[in-house]
Design a protein around this nucleic acid. Sequence first.
DNA 1: TAGTGGTCTAGACCACTAT
DNA 2: TAGTGGTCTAGACCACTAG
Lengths: 247, 247
Amino acid sequence: MERPLDRNSYVPLYAQIQQKLRQMIDRGEIAPGAPVPSERELAERYGVSRMTARQALRALRQDGLVYRERGIGTFVARRKVDVHTRNLVGFSEDMRQRGLAPSSKLIALRRERATQQVAAELGIAAGEEVFHLERLRLADGTPMAYETNYIPASLCPDLETYDLERDSLYRILEEEHGIRMQSADEVLEAARAPRREARYLSIRAGSPVLVVHRVVYGDNGRAIESVRTIYRADRYRATFHLTKNTL
Amino acid sequence: MERPLDRNSYVPLYAQIQQKLRQMIDRGEIAPGAPVPSERELAERYGVSRMTARQALRALRQDGLVYRERGIGTFVARRKVDVHTRNLVGFSEDMRQRGLAPSSKLIALRRERATQQVAAELGIAAGEEVFHLERLRLADGTPMAYETNYIPASLCPDLETYDLERDSLYRILEEEHGIRMQSADEVLEAARAPRREARYLSIRAGSPVLVVHRVVYGDNGRAIESVRTIYRADRYRATFHLTKNTL
DNA sequence: TAGTGGTCTAGACCACTAT
DNA sequence: TAGTGGTCTAGACCACTAG
């Protein structure tokens, strides 16, 4: 028999089902290509309506863990690329998902007035106060990326009190300030490493680098931060899982 | 009064509502930051249940067009980056969305036996027949990318009969062969342009390029194609819209 | 208090696939 | 024919936010 769901939990039922299925897939209990229980079977097994079971499967498909075939069933996807779905995680979590230990070296942290460009990116007025943060990002102790963040000072006035060499900015914003990230726009491009950043990254100036510019939005639709991350091209690849829209 | 939905159409009701809202947003009839009709209002206005209206709004959020705040409402997102959501489109459609005219120069198209690596990417046996396609991709007549595709020959045995300089591979697969793309894994990295591709792209060998490797999966979970696209770094940026998972 | 989005129910019909 | 996923209904309760 199946362990029942916790109906008093704050975790929605569909999320609990999703989590159970995700575990079974991760542990290999359901092999790639093998069918996942159908919506109706999940509904019966866990004592929920079919719409609830369906919601769990939809989220798994969104993450690329399963694919669905109408009239046939839902199956565990055969992953080719090792996709760390990049569901809006920061550098620390990204590295952990890749099995690497993240760390940082603080280069700069100061309050300053937003330039026209930064203000436009963050949707605030030019001249408003922002935190300007620069960190060298390491994975297993070796330089991986150079990251520059701009965060509206009003969102997190006490940012200077945290240890940004060890702590995760996203963790601080999310857990300490209740700022929930909802979505982000990312632009990726290839470039030559600028002299200054190249020195920190221990590469030659002009070497190819992957530049990722990201603006993160909160659940109120307002920008939380603007980040530019310069990755060593020889150490980093960005991975994505794309799905056809209209669920 | 509102134009009613077409209940006999093959287009689902939620997709029709989604389309109407998308138009209103695109035309600027609902300004960024302004509220979209609530789920209950859409339900009443179009004579559908709330769950159906909800499905329309969910898809719009997934695309980053709106954001939702519980207890308050749904609002048109204030886009900072011009995101062409890259919902699994090919080069042709990508360029069109950027307002550029795509064209191609066919470099090679031949049947060959899949190497170990290509076979692994496509999930077929090494030695099985694949089409090997190479094209120089142009936007408004200037070189933008060099693209190499591998497609299992069994999927589209008559590929050679199409004009791959003018036609879209995705269109051929989708419309002529009923192969529906469902998802894809993408890996992006920065690199130096190899000599051969650099010549086609009219750049110096060693210049930075953005290399995008993509494996596309159909709705049966099987790989449809493996593509490697080398973009000129000075002409192309890849844009993405990321969302927090669990809808 | 009224309105919102988030979750959930217990059904229903459909097109599709495999047997 | 039986089972699947896709769509849809007409309700419900909840936590949340605003006035």
